[in-house]
Structure formats: C-alpha cells, structure tokens
Amino acid sequence: MSQQPKGWKEISIAGVCWKPATDYHTGDWRSFKPVRDPKKCTKCLLCHIVCPDAAIQWNKETQDIEFNYDFCKGCGICANECGAKAIVMVQEGGE
C-alpha cells in the first residue's frame, strides 16, 4: 500500500468493491466486551440472530457458541436479550 493516491488506471473498473468486508476488523471500536458464562448458557442461539455484526457464530466442531471479537462492536444487545443472563458486558482494558 503506497501513500500515493491511485490513478484511474489502477482502481477497479467502475469502482467496484472487490475486498470482503471481513478483511476490515471493526472490533477495535469496542469499549465493552461481552463475556459468556458457559455454565449458565443454554445454547439457545438467540444471540446469533440478534447480533448486528454476525460476530456470534455456532462452531460445529466444538458444538459451542463462539464470539468473534474481531467484529464485535460491543453494543450489548446479546447481553440484554439473553434469557439465561449468561452474557455480561465487561469494560475493555479493565479486569
């Protein structure tokens, strides 16, 4: 990546976006981090469907829920929606 702005010959035709957004990590926007208590979690997966950032996924191999902190923006919807109260929001940088 050079600092020089690209000319029209170097950019894609019609300015089409070609990189997947998953290359861009939005996780560093976060000031609160969701932490899941596996003992309380019932694996209902409601957090998967309410997450705006697709940061909560089901891992088939471990048969468990996985948080992808590369993308989680720390909005806290999962903690608020969790029926079993298994997710708590913890401030980043603290203990």
């Binding site: 957004a21 998953t22 990590h25 939005t26 998967h48 697709a54 590369d70």
Partner: peptide
Amino acid sequence: IKELTEKPELFTAGHRACAGCG
C-alpha cells in the same frame, strides 16, 4: 435458529454500521 446458523452470512461481518444498528 440452529438451522439458521448453518445458512451462509450473505450480509457479512465487517460492515461499518454503528454499534447496536437495527
């Protein structure tokens, strides 16, 4: 929801909406 988790994410992570975007 379990079946839904197996469906591909066609609107992927890494978009730059605000936190908690409806």
